[in-house]
Design a protein around this nucleic acid. Structure first.
Ligand code: SF4
Ligand code: SF4
Lengths: 141, 141
DNA sequence: ATTTAATGATACCTTTAGGGGTTATTTAAA
DNA sequence: TTTAAATAACCCCTAAAGGTATCATTAAAT
């Protein structure tokens, strides 16, 4: 009932980098701010680049940058890129195809929760996070 | 973003057995209806008994039975018994203690989703499932 | 050209969830 | 009292997620 660590890391990274999407962020910079194990962070930055969410620039003065306009990247994009589990069509009881002859009450009840959750992920972009002052981009302690 | 298999199995088991909470269900019966690997099912029935959600009766004609009145067992009880992850206090970005000086927008936004989700789990009992005709208890194909 | 500061690639290690196998124990029924 | 049908206990196997280590590559700065 929560995201994988990999997804959480992805959300942190993208959220943090969306503060200034013209800036190049080094892995070291991100490491100092996002509480992600360094090696794993490196791996994931690499991965996010391949996924097209980041652009990486090698060499001295290199780093990473968000690849697209902020309003074009939704939270769901990040979740899906880091954890293919969401689109998986499983019901409350974990069935892929329902073994029942008629739908149970949890079907709609839980379906509503799921829909509401996905709706937030689908409609919230990195631009929105900043607009609404998601201060993971504002001020670290 | 979904329950563990173990939790899903737990929900299936308890939901199915709540149809008739006076009946003894054998592992074999549950196996034939709930699409759970037999050995793993056995292990989990054992576990649920130790957790106090089921009562087990050994020997010939033995089996398992729901341990308490249906209205005293919430879905959250089952989730918590099978997967200690929910109460874990992690935010949208996976932080246990927030590194920010002021709360970000996802804090409340996601907090609301989480609260709504937990509220359903906390307030829905096995009795409610049956009352509302959750037909995992009604008719298998 | 050489150095240095950055990322890329690859392979390995560790932990945990999920699943399986075997033998012991219990108890109703024959 | 023996047998059969059930659960209990214990140990091991596998795959995937999370994390680590090492070396190669790039490119700006000197
Ligand atoms: S009706 Fe119930 S058991 Fe069937 S798919 Fe929906 S939630 Fe799952
Ligand atoms: S304010 Fe944002 S970063 Fe801090 S705990 Fe809440 S959701 Fe997490």
């Amino acid at each position: 009932m929560n995201f994988t660590k990999t997804t959480e890391y992805g959300l942190r990274i993208m959220s943090y980098m969306s503060l200034d999407n013209s800036k190049l962020y080094t892995a070291n910079d991100l490491f100092n701010n996002l509480q992600i194990p360094f090696r794993y962070l490196r791996k994931q930055l690499n991965f996010l680049s391949k996924q097209g969410l980041l652009v990486s620039i090698q060499g001295k003065q290199g780093g990473y940058q968000i690849a697209k306009p902020l309003h074009e990247i939704t939270l769901l994009n990040i979740v899906e890129a880091t954890d293919e589990v969401i689109p998986e069509n499983k019901c409350f009881f974990g069935f892929h195809d329902c073994p029942l002859t008629e739908k149970c009450s949890m079907h709609d009840k839980w379906g509503d929760v799921r829909d509401a959750t996905l709706e937030i992920l689908r409609t919230t972009t990195l631009f929105d996070l900043n607009k609404e002052k998601c201060s993971i981009n504002l001020s670290l302690k």
